[in-house]
Design a protein around this nucleic acid. Structure first.
Lengths: 158, 158
DNA sequence: TTTATTCTTGACAGTATCAGTAGAGATTCC
DNA sequence: GGAATCTCTACTGATACTGTCAAGAATAAA
């Protein structure tokens, strides 16, 4: 019942971007250094986040990844969802959106008393994650006195 | 972020016992048949539940496993906890009960903004599971018209 | 006392997933 | 052209999950 590191790293990385770069592009090598995450692994995670529409990218010098939305519009739920693939405590709930999208993953399916519990638990957890935005984290970070690392590109203009 | 089958099977099996046998002993072969769970695997799960004090056992003919408490005193949380080992969304929270019980599993530990999120999420989920008892499930089962299978031992006395 | 029943314990194995590494390539800026 | 940066795909070692199996111990009933 553990979250994968993709979720945890994903949230940390997204926070890092929001905190240090806002919506400006940030490079993997900087994020991975600050957050102590393997850069090659972070690449993969960012691909997932990009597919989910949370990040956009730009190649070449001065390129990097940037948030597609302001920090207050990005919730932890979105990140976890993108990294984890889904936010379900069990598999026997899948494919219940439209009818027959997937065969019922459990022979009891709708007659199962416990199914409802896992479904509701998943929902409650999702709601909690949805209630927290990257901006909330950034504010906490500032309260904690976390230092913002200035973007090297702008160092020269100070 | 999935619950293991141990948790799901554990809850189903415990419900089955409460529903069909109350606090009387029930045998693995009956439970596994009704719930369609591998009997050999169920044995293992029941050992965990027994260690957690939720079940007691008795060998020999007419033996079996029985609940140690009435159904209304057994929560889903207890079962999941016993089967899963713990109810934490991440590992970086472990061993924080007493001081220094375990080395901090993360290099950021207390300075980590996201740690708090996972901790709170775990708590919320645990609280939800704690709010549901086996009795609640039994009542739902009766409302759904689930048939109680009579214990063979008492068939003769009817 | 014998026998059938039931739980107990520990070992074993196939599969899947996780977490990370790696290489070759595409794009962009200077 | 050359350097920086992302992109895509494949691979791998470790671990955990989901069982299966065998031998044995306790108990009740005949």
């Amino acid at each position: 019942m553990k979250l994968s590191t993709k979720s945890r790293y994903g949230v940390r990385a997204m926070f890092d971007m929001a905190f240090h770069a806002g919506t400006l592009p940030a490079q993997i090598k900087d994020i991975s250094r600050r957050q102590n995450i393997s850069p090659r692994y972070l690449e993969q995670i960012f691909q997932d986040l990009k597919k989910a529409g949370l990040l956009k990218s730009r190649r070449g010098p001065q390129g990097g990844y940037s948030l597609t939305k302001p920090a207050e519009e990005i919730s932890i739920k979105e990140i976890v969802l993108a990294a984890e693939g889904e936010l379900l405590l069990v598999n026997c709930i899948k494919g219940r959106r439209k009818d027959g999208e997937a065969p019922p993953a459990c022979e009891f399916d709708n007659q199962c008393l416990t199914q409802h519990i896992w479904q509701e638990g998943s929902r409650i957890l999702g709601d909690y994650f949805a209630s927290i935005s990257l901006k909330d984290l950034c504010e906490q970070g500032q309260e904690m006195g976390l230092e913002k690392e200035l973007d090297h590109r702008f160092m020269y203009f100070i």
